[in-house]
Design a binder for these strands. Structure first.
Length: 835
RNA sequence: GCCGAAGUGGCGGAAUUGGUAGACGCGCUAGAUUCAGGAUCUAGUGAAGGAUUAACUUCGUGCGGGUUCGAGUCCCGCCUUCGGCACCA
């Protein structure tokens, strides 16, 4: 009959403490604090409005950690803001006639309310939004900084164009030839675009992975390393036969095979081609081929991966090392965007060249033999041999190993004027211009007199024009180009009439520096004050999904390095510690009755909306379930049973602690405890140690397992009026706090405290208490467990053995056998090796 | 093809450095309490054998070898799944 009264009413309690935290400024971070700082950050979220529980996972991970660090005595900076430029707002405008700004503001309000209601502890005073002029003013400011330093430039080149989004994309936004956002196959177009010169930082981005090795997931570093794709080699110059002074360069990592070159192949897009074949009998064939190849490869590059096509141009080039004349081909397997857009064909030692040569009857000339073997015979080869070996038929280099040969050739190249050592990267400069409205305008003016002129710093921000002046409907050029009020301006240089650049920036530019703005979010004079950035940066723990491994994380690292070079920041890396959380999956029922577990999303119909869920079950239940279901780094599955279990356990904790709230006590005298109580005291500290250790490792699921275990044990004491029980409850409340903050706060106050539990210190486990007087040692015979014995802690081999021999089962197994060796792991195990 | 991660009960998952495999939870079984429960409590729950309160024994962490007193953990060789890159010269 009192049961109803005992039930924990989450909604009312949670609202009460959320208000309390807000009013007491619990999560306000200050640079004036004497405490050590801890900057905790989850990746800049896009305000999609209707957050589902899957979205909440990384906020909860952050919040558990933040509250814990707070209790550990850190001044925690845990900010939030909105990555709020981008296509969805604009599409809402096009499709439903909504205002992008209003639509965005509404979504932010909804998302913000959900996070509030989830009880995630943020310093809301520092909230920022990328679409507001007081933010994008500084995005533009950073653009100008890069421009000033030659790291932002406009160039015409092959760009990835998405017909769906009607804008160009960065390489990082094209996945398998498909737009990352709308799944439309991407086309290649030649357009003048703005780039950030991230390639200037390629080597440093690579080298500084060493600084991240310890606290970044290894696969993220690997992904970045592969994406940067540094490769060392030589650029070799092949003169064009019959036209003195003209030549073609190729990049090769295998200069040791130079004597085996039997043809050269250009990419179909190679700019010199048209002129090269003009007037030749091959002209038409080459042009037809190139047109087909360029179109075809964009439609379906993957399936054409093995079959190679090409045509002979009718021209020849001369191999500079042996003066041989070799035919010049066009081939569809040569990439225009890598190296020089041309390759030297070495069929003997490159599989692609081999396939190509065999198909078109080009000679194969092996020049490398295995260290322990013969030079392969061209006519017998069925595939290329790409291994290093010993050079043959290579003039003065014959007999050298591949490594030696390459070193000598790298020296000879410049001396003899035909080549030089070079480095190539898979990474390209970051294409940042977008032909869309909802982004930060590029602060550049095009003047017929002065050309390209940067907008002066004092004229920032370049504001987006009002929405009613703009036609959002994509028309292959930026919507801003349709707005004369925006476009027409005066040149900052000469004062004459000029036009603004009509493009806006990639939203990844916004997120490449937002973590810096949190350090000083309201600064009107500068993007941030150096002293404030130096106080908070770098981010001590960054949390987010690994879908940003090569985009956002690479861009942000690039910005950080550039800004440090400018003296605006101190540290070489923004995020020394990165944590990748796994995703939340849920059942998707298929039409045929089967079901699969898929990543939760609204479009799949398996999303559980966060707001309604929290209203029904409470935020603590959501947090607890998500943190207990598995390691935060792995994907988890959302199930009804799991929700019930979390809710049930919280009620169990509530009954235990609230029902014995008067027993809660902060201290006990170990000396005065009975032995069973001492055992409980030890269990308390053992739990504290385990929970602490696993919080530090971000293994929250095991923290909760230990707490469950502890609660199970405490139930055995419930009726007893033992001091050690009240003491255990006291610690339970504190240990519960990071995981179920609302309930813990309520219990803490019911236990008579006025201040927040999060201002209470998280204690170190009592090391003395952890060392029990009696320990159980496992007895193994030949590696098999045969018994357990209780001995005093620190017992010697002889003592343990003596006790073991007494144990019935052990004695039985020892009968008639001789113990030849004893291995003791103190206080844990003894293994008796018997014959 | 290359790179990365992972394979442990019916299920989610534990097991820092090699040292009691299966913690904790779900589910299931039995019982208690209850007008009733999808609430709560207690006990059991890897498989097989042995057993009517057994003790205990054998097998067992994807597969096959190896190192070791001892292997989920280390080494060698495979298989499978997931993720990323994919003609990068």
């Amino acid at each position: 009959m009192t049961r109803e009264k005992d039930l924990y009413e989450a909604p009312a309690v949670e609202a009460k403490w959320q208000k309390f935290w807000e009013e007491t400024g619990l999560f306000h971070a200050s640079e004036d604090s004497p405490k050590p700082k801890y900057y905790l950050l989850e990746m800049f979220p896009y305000p999609s409005g209707d957050l589902h529980v899957g979205h909440m996972k990384n906020y909860f991970i952050g919040d558990v950690l933040g509250r814990y660090k707070m209790m550990r005595g850190f001044e925690v900076l845990h900010p939030i803001g909105w990555d709020s430029f981008g296509l969805p707002a604009e599409n809402a405008a096009i499709q439903r006639g909504l205002s992008p700004a209003q639509w965005t503001a509404d979504n932010i309000a909804t998302s913000r309310a959900t996070l509030h209601r989830a009880g995630v502890g943020y310093d809301w005073r520092r909230e920022i939004a990328a679409y507001l002029p007081n933010y994008y003013k500084w995005t533009q400011w950073l653009f100008l900084k890069l421009y000033e330093n030659g790291l932002a430039y406009r160039a015409s080149g092959p760009a990835n164009y998405c017909p769906g989004c009607q804008t160009v994309l960065a390489n990082e936004q094209v996945v398998d030839g498909i737009c990352y956002r709308c799944d439309t196959p991407v086309e290649r177009r030649h357009l003048p675009q703005w780039y950030f010169k991230i390639t200037s930082y390629a080597d440093r981005l690579l080298a500084d992975h060493a600084l991240l090795a310890e606290h970044w997931p290894r696969h993220v570093i690997t992904l970045q390393r592969n994406w940067i794709g540094r490769s060392e080699g030589m650029t070799v110059r092949f003169p064009l036969v019959g036209e003195e002074g003209r030549h073609f360069d190729v990049f090769t990592t295998r200069a040791d095979t130079l004597y085996g070159v039997t043809f050269m192949a250009l990419a179909p897009e190679h700019p010199a081609l048209a002129e090269l074949v003009a007037g030749l009998p091959q002209q038409e064939e080459v042009e037809t081929f190139c047109r087909a190849a360029i179109n075809q490869r964009e439609i379906d590059r993957a399936s054409a991966a093995t079959e190679k096509h090409g045509v002979f141009t009718g021209r020849y080039v001369r191999n500079p090392v042996n003066d041989e004349e070799i035919p010049l081909w066009v081939a569809d397997y040569v990439l225009a965007t890598y190296g020089e857009g041309a390759v030297m064909g070495v069929p003997g030692h490159d599989q692609r060249d081999f396939l190509f040569a065999r198909k078109y009857g080009i000679a194969v000339a092996p020049v490398i033999r295995p260290a322990e073997g013969e030079l392969p015979r061209a006519e017998e080869m069925t595939e290329a041999d790409a291994e290093y070996g010993v050079m043959e038929n290579s003039g003065p280099y014959s007999g050298l190993t591949s490594e030696e040969g390459m070193a000598r050739l790298a020296e000879a190249g410049p001396r003899e004027g035909w080549g030089r050592a070079t480095v190539n990267y898979h990474l390209h400069d970051w294409l940042i211009s977008r032909q869309r409205y909802w982004g930060a305008p590029i602060p550049v003016v095009h003047c017929p007199q002065c050309g390209e002129v940067a907008v002066p710093y004092e004229d920032l921000p370049v504001l987006l024009p009002p929405e009613d002046q703009v036609d959002f409907t994509p028309a292959e050029r930026s919507p801003l180009a349709s707005c004369p009020e925006y476009l027409k301006t005066t040149c900052p240089g000469c004062g004459g009439p000029a036009e603004r650049d009509a493009d806006t920036m990639d939203t990844y530019v916004d997120s490449a520096w937002y973590f810096l703005r949190y350090c000083d979010p309201t600064n009107d004079e500068a993007p941030w004050e150096r002293t404030r950035a130096d106080f908070w940066m770098p981010v001590d723990q960054y949390i987010g999904g690994d879908e940003h491994a090569v985009s956002h994380l690479l861009y942000a690292r690039f910005f950080q390095k550039f800004l440090a070079d400018q003296g605006l920041l101190r540290d070489p890396e923004p995020f020394p510690a990165l944590f990748n959380q796994g995703m939340v999956k849920a059942r998707v029922e298929k039409a045929n009755g089967s079901a699969t577990m898929e990543v939760m999303s609204k479009s799949k119909g398996n999303a559980v909306p966060a707001g309604p869920f929290i209203a029904e079950h409470g935020a603590d239940v959501a947090r607890l379930y998500i943190t207990f279901a598995g390691p935060p780094s792995k994907d988890m599955e959302w199930t009804e049973e799991g929700v019930d279990a979390a809710a049930r356990w919280l009620q169990r904790v509530w009954r235990l602690v609230a029902g014995n709230i008067d027993a809660v006590r902060e201290a006990v005298s170990f000396e005065e405890l009975t032995e069973p109580e001492r055992e409980l005291y030890r269990a308390t500290h053992r739990t504290l140690k385990r929970v602490t250790d696993d919080l530090e490792r971000l293994h929250f699921n095991t923290c909760l397992a230990f707490l469950m275990d502890f609660v199970n044990r405490l139930y055995l004491w419930e009726a007893a009026e033992a001091p050690a029980f009240g003491y255990a409850l006291y610690h339970l409340i504190k240990m519960l706090a990071p995981f179920a903050p609302h309930m813990a706060e309520e219990l803490w106050h019911r236990a008579g405290r006025d201040d927040s539990v999060f201002r209470a210190a998280w204690e170190e486990a009592d090391a003395g208490a952890l060392a029990a007087a009696q320990v159980t040692v496992v007895v193994q015979i030949n590696g098999k467990v045969r018994g357990r014995v209780a001995v005093p802690a620190g017992a010697s081999e002889e003592e343990v053995f003596a006790a073991a021999a007494e144990e019935a089962n052990v004695a039985r197994h020892l009968e008639g056998r001789k113990v030849v060796k004893k291995i003791l792991v103190p206080d844990k195990i003894i293994n008796l090796v018997c014959k």
